[in-house]
Design a protein around this nucleic acid. Sequence first.
DNA 1: GCCGTTTTCGGCCCGACTGTTTTCAGTCG
Length: 577
Amino acid sequence: MNRNEVAAALSEIGTLLELQGENPFKTRAYGNAARVIKSMDQDLAELVENRQVDSLKGIGKALAEKITLLVRDGRLPYLEELRTRVPTGLLEWLRIPGLGPKKVRAIHLALGISTLGELEYACQENRLRDLDGFGQASQDKILPGIDRLRKNAGRFLQPVVQAEAERLLALVRPVPGVIRATVAGSVRRKTETSKDIDIVVASADPEPVMDAFADSDQVEEITGRGPTKCSVVLKSGPSADLRVVGDTAYPFTVMYFTGSKEHNIAMRSRARAAGLKLNEYGLIPEDGGASLPCADEAAIYGSLDLAYIEPELREDLGELAAASRGSLPELVSDSDICGVLHCHSTWSDGSASIADMAQACRERGYSYLGICDHSQAASYAGGLSPEQVLEQHKEIDRLNHDLGGSFTILKGIEVDILTDGALDYPDEFMARFDLVVASVHSRFNLSEEDQTSRILKALDNRYVDILGHPTGRLLLARDPYPVDLRAVVRAAAERHVAVEVNAHPSRLDLDWRELAIGLRNGLLTAINPDAHSPAGIDHVHHGVGIARKGWCTAEQVLNAWPLRRLQDWLKARRNGA
DNA sequence: GCCGTTTTCGGCCCGACTGTTTTCAGTCG
């Protein structure tokens, strides 16, 4: 088994143990181990070979043994035995709001059912409300939960939740008494998808804030309301939580609500080690007394001898250690972006002319644009024949001439990587482009081995500057094709080929976790909007968020370089430097 | 199941809210 498969197996063990009513700390140990394995830099097979698996933080003797078996044999009797004891359908039930391991287990044991359909039927037949610890209300919450689960798997893309969050924020900010307010949660951490939206407000008078929030026309249903906290489901799908606290507690609440959960646990453990208790109200000496005063989040981190940690990094993937050493990177930001590469035009499947795309870039303050229409194999997307390419280049020359050097359009191409790893034009023709993005658009069903060697072969072509959307995933819609992404990213770094962070909200591919590991090994990236219209250029913002999550600095992003430097780099690659 | 500048055993982050209770377990973030 490879790293991801081992992580999935450990995570499954944790969940199955939870459903068996095991010690919650034991189940958490499996969840932690899964995370550690998934995000580790080292080669897992090598660690197994050298019997060093237990050198990983959070992995001891017992877990090391199980991991070793998974890697070597591809199976683990312990997991197989667990599966026979816990029906797999129950794993699905856990994703229904309000159902945790205890209740899932109770329903399963009392009614002898284990599939989503059976659970739905049992609710319709009123068979849950009479169980111990259940009632009419808990039964009534399950059916809508099943509907939501079936409709959208309960997660939403960045643009959806960001827009909704901004609207909610705009709603509560003007309420009298509100001192400050922010979006928190995974939206603030810029994860690729979110389950819900978190809003935190500082005010001495929560009631009118809660009213404004709950009465919003965005709200479908109010699912909970206490004195300081209100939970709703929005008409657009996601749920949203509001928390109102006093101004003194506000930074602590913002930090707590921003998460991630794992980051919070690590922070609270660190506080504990320093004789302090960290919660959403303050940082309190264990022997009692008032909270240490902290005016903002930076002060909280400072009180624990840590540099300020940007929200995107709060995933408990090494950020505390780096903050403690003072070695956190200065993350790339929207204002660092100098231009955009990988955009389409009406020459292939875009909806705007090259001139209009260039104008849209200038309006956004960019100084260059890489036009990368599809190559001939992408016939479904109007891919360009060599003759059309030559025509397009004439148009770009004309436009550049008219622009008089105030803005530059690069002659790029998004060239298909063919099934055998060759590119879609002959080498001598490739030399005509300023910039080449190579992407897979077909035959997603190759074996991992074949897909990997196909892409590796393309990376060997000296004309390839950037690898496009390296896994082909469509978030919430299509899984990545099977590929040894680590090997691909490593090879790209070695050959000085950049791997794009495709900024389209449905892609966000390269994944930020893999980006972080690649960057540590010398990888360069480009934050590419893959825009098919002027509005699509704005997707760069989402890509920047993902790059930040990957610990990426401006120095590591091709399109955060000024034109001249980018051109020199491209030229040097052509010359084999 | 992991871990140790208090510990090799006894801890493991912490609080709001709900629903079902009659003082609290379960869920959630």
